[in-house]
Amino acid sequence: MNTLFVEAVGLMAPGLAGWTASQAVLAGQQPYVAAPMPAAMATLLPANERRRVTATIKLALQVAQEAMAQIDLDASAVRTVFASSGGDSEVLDKICTALTQPDRPVSPTHFHQSVHNTPAGYWAIATSCMQPSLSLAAYDGSFAAGLREAAALAWADQARVLLVAYDLPLPAPMAGHRKIVVPFGVALLLNPAPPANRLALLRLTSSGNEPADRLDDEGLEHLRSGNPSARSLPLLCAIAQGAARQVILSAGDSATLRVEIDP
């Protein structure tokens, strides 16, 4: 029961502009070149909505959209798990700033965008998806927690789950109190049953306290250690390499999650 198939991947980070464009870099066939992250377009949102939403929402929706575009499948049938350490800090900064002003003029839009499940809500609306969706947080272990919850959901319901993990650096003045130095978003479409086309087979074997894998490439390691969602990078590199191997993902503090990967 502990196997999951990866059917599609979405990715957005500095120097990694989409999964398709990044596979050669992640597989070690091309050097990683740091570059500013392109603006997340999230074109599935209607234009008027796109103007209203924040960079965090667009990042989450962009990687989700990229993954779903790789497969001929109606997104309305897919359950979702959204994992993020801090949610939308840009919105929280605006609210906390408004609360320092006379009469505390909190914007209604900021307030409804402040919930951790805002990207999940926008995704459900944009894809007309009424399936179950969970939004969770586990600080630096958010990706590993999201992967395990997505797996548990996929196995329990015997259904596909789209896992979306994303985090942006916090704005000043919160930035000095939380070390997220790069933006990073990733989405994995997971299937508990063997699909027609698979990128990889995952086996979530155990969790423990063995040292988490680091990446040889300094630039990629800078991403991995600089964003909770980028703790997924050893897994993404293994998928891109297409060889059987195992990775040990950081699950927060000293905890880890071991994943075996078969092409």
Binding site: M1, N2, V115, L136, S142, R148, E149, A156
Partner: peptide, 27 residues
């Protein structure tokens, strides 16, 4: 295994669903 569930006002109801799934998965 530990995480916070934050889906606004359904958060701690969904904790029961997650608990069931995580236990069933053997986590």
């Amino acid at each position: 295994a530990a995480f916070a569930i934050s889906t606004a006002c359904s958060s701690s109801a969904k904790a029961f669903a997650s608990a069931w799934r995580q236990m069933r998965a053997g986590f």
